[in-house]
């Protein structure tokens, strides 16, 4: 077998369940025998992506594929899209509302953390259509 897949629907309305997919991915990777350091990188990348979909895009889907040499995480939503990706990638840049800030999010660190945690990050986005983020972590 050369690929193992996991699929998650991320509920847009629910802050409480945000992070569930990341927990599930961790558990699965551990059972597959993936190293602790790689597991941590995947879980951080996955968590930040999940949260972004909840906060900025009213939910979406996450697909994780484990290959013998890499883990690919694809997060896709039909939210507002990101008008300026380069700006969004900057540390500290955030469009989060005051209310979101009060909940402890919106430091503008999510995308930079995702970049740091993965070996490869690709953002495909169109304003008004949605965003698809593909991250690769090599084993």
């Amino acid at each position: 077998m050369d690929v193992f897949r996991l699929h998650f629907d991320i509920d847009g309305g629910s802050f409480a369940s945000a992070g569930n997919a990341s927990v599930e991915v961790k558990k699965t990777l551990r059972q597959l025998g993936v190293s602790n350091a790689v597991i941590r990188r995947c879980s951080i990348a996955m968590y930040e992506g999940e949260i972004n979909m909840v906060i900025h895009a009213d939910g979406g889907t996450a697909d994780v594929e484990v290959y013998p040499d890499r883990i690919v995480m694809v997060l896709e939503d039909h939210g507002p899209g990101i008008p300026d990706v380069e700006l969004a990638m900057k540390e500290g840049y955030s469009t989060a509302t005051e209310q979101i800030h009060n909940m402890g999010f919106g430091a503008g660190m999510g995308l930079p953390n995702m970049k740091r945690s993965s070996d490869d990050l690709k953002i495909e986005t169109k304003v008004g259509v949605g965003t698809k983020i593909t991250m690769v972590v090599r084993l």
Binding site: M1, D2, V3, F4, Q31, L32, G33, V66, P68
Partner: peptide, 10 residues
């Protein structure tokens, strides 16, 4: 770990 071989674990 289910197996020490990744392919088998998968």
């Amino acid at each position: 770990r289910l197996s020490d071989n990744l392919a088998e674990a998968m």
